[in-house]
């Protein structure tokens, strides 16, 4: 698809709620490229290197220079980048892996991304995800469930978690995050 950005609007258009004990925000347009390939392949390592990244270990998310690449499954990675550059990144990866058995797909529009920020950010997601947050290390990508929908989350800052879900349930996830971060709901 072309670089045209005619009227592109993210699912919740960057909605932010800062009235709770943590700030929850939909981050707006975000580039995401899904990549299925042999994760051990040299061509893949080279293609990622060209993007300033490296092949992540299982459950790892590698961040360099504004781009990230996350391990999603034994044969799947997710590259995170600027929305406008996603199509280009996808094309580059496709070219670099042309001789490999690989599937590259721009999924920037299929997802919504959120941040939960603040000293008590963990407490918001503790209410929604069956994850031991005390054991979730920086640099770890955890695919799980947020209440009733699939989610992928990781520590994107010292007091910040990021979460990706499907676009169609962005409103539902925002609702979850809002009610779970409401003041008075701090877990003491």
């Amino acid at each position: 698809m072309s670089e045209m950005m005619t009227g592109a609007v993210s699912p919740l258009n960057g909605k932010t709620i800062a009235t709770g004990f943590a700030t929850v925000a939909e981050v707006g347009l975000k580039g995401m490229v899904s990549l299925r390939a042999d994760l051990g392949s040299k061509a893949l390592a080279k293609a990622l290197k060209a993007l300033g990244l490296k092949t992540p270990a299982p459950r790892e998310i590698v961040t360099e220079g504004g781009r990230s690449v996350a391990w999603m499954s034994p044969d799947e990675l997710l590259v995170l980048c600027g929305y406008a550059e996603a199509a280009g990144v996808a094309t580059d990866l496709e070219k670099a892996l042309a001789k490999e058995h690989a599937l590259v797909a721009n999924v920037s529009d299929a997802r919504a991304m959120f941040t939960v920020a603040g000293a008590r950010a963990d407490e918001v997601l503790m209410k929604l995800c069956p994850v031991d947050f005390a054991a979730l290390k920086p640099g770890e990508m955890r695919r799980t469930r947020s209440a009733q929908v699939a989610a992928a989350l990781w520590r994107s800052g010292p007091e910040e978690l990021s979460l990706i879900c499907f676009r169609s349930v962005a409103g539902y996830v925002m609702g979850l995050l809002e009610v779970s971060s409401r003041k008075g709901g701090e877990i003491s």
Binding site: P58, R59, S73, P74, P130, R142, R143, T144, R145
Partner: peptide
């Protein structure tokens, strides 16, 4: 066995 993470039944 792929992720190495122990998960509960609701994730399976």
């Amino acid at each position: 066995p792929y992720c190495g993470v122990t998960v509960e039944e609701t994730e399976l």
